[in-house]
């Protein structure tokens, strides 16, 4: 709202019309487009490398103290733990970084970075850790033997091991003792046509808009626009893992 008011003071007639059309379409048309786009991948179609799921995180918008994305991930995937932070599963966590020179504090969400060259896939002895055609790096828990090599190989500490017997799993996120697990870009809901991951949705609902999810292969997707308009970088780009998760505003 604040932004619209600010703009209105110096709008030309043409801009006013364009902006109102944008606003009206945002309220009435875009939700329709979104619900139509939900049918994009038919349920019986295989995922293809044409789709490139990605996330951009704008650290300047991430708010210190906010953990909405973490809570949303827990709720979405039923990651309820045992109040044992050392061993409880964590697919996304908040990091707090302090610049030693300026004392400037930055917080950012850290999850699986969905590398195009994932070290966790290289080390897995059973092929359970794999990269899906559309770029989602995940664990096939039917073949995971729980050796935890992948946890060791991941430079971002993105994976967790399930140490205890679980009950109360949700239907969309099967998980159990003896397997490794990590962020899978909400694969179940994405496959069923959702346009957004739980963490992005939560961040949007809070009004922070720090997380942007989308399909890189579509130039009009939210994440493509975000990457085009802001400079973004991969963490530890020197390792050449080509992560699909990028960070802006460092």
């Amino acid at each position: 709202m604040r932004l619209i008011m600010k703009d209105r003071t110096h709008l030309t007639r043409r801009e006013f019309i364009v902006k109102s059309i944008t606003a009206i379409s945002a309220v009435y048309i875009i939700p329709d487009i979104i619900s139509k786009a939900e049918a994009s991948k038919p349920l019986d179609a295989e995922v293809s490398p044409k789709t490139k799921w990605a996330i951009n995180v704008d650290v300047t918008k991430c708010v210190d103290g906010c953990t909405s994305c973490v809570e949303a991930c827990v709720d979405e995937n039923g990651l309820y733990g045992f109040d044992r932070p050392e061993t409880d599963s964590q697919w996304i966590r908040k990091l707090r970084i302090k610049d030693i020179k300026t004392d400037k504090v930055t917080t950012l969400p850290m999850m699986c970075q969905h590398c195009e060259n994932p070290p966790c896939v290289d080390v897995c002895p059973t092929g359970a850790s794999f990269r899906r055609e559309d770029g989602i790096v995940m664990v096939n828990q039917h073949t995971c033997i729980g050796c935890r090599y992948c946890m060791m190989a991941c430079p971002f500490k993105a994976r967790s091991f399930v140490h205890e017997n679980l009950t109360e799993q949700v239907t969309s996120a099967p998980r159990g003792k003896g397997c490794v697990e990590s962020c899978n870009l909400c694969v179940n809901r994405i496959d069923h046509g959702s346009e957004t991951t739980a963490c992005e949705e939560a961040c949007m609902k809070e009004g922070h808009n720090a997380i942007t999810f989308g399909d890189l292969s579509e130039p009009d997707s939210r994440v493509s626009i975000a990457i085009k308009t802001k400079s973004s970088r991969r963490l530890r780009a020197d390792m050449r893992l080509k992560q699909r998760v990028t960070y802006s505003g460092f």
Partner: peptide
């Protein structure tokens, strides 16, 4: 059923929304 839900169980975020 050590991993899969043995009753239909929606995720809480969906129930919330």
């Amino acid at each position: 059923f050590s991993c899969h839900a043995s009753i239909p169980r929606d995720s809480l975020s969906r129930t919330k929304s």
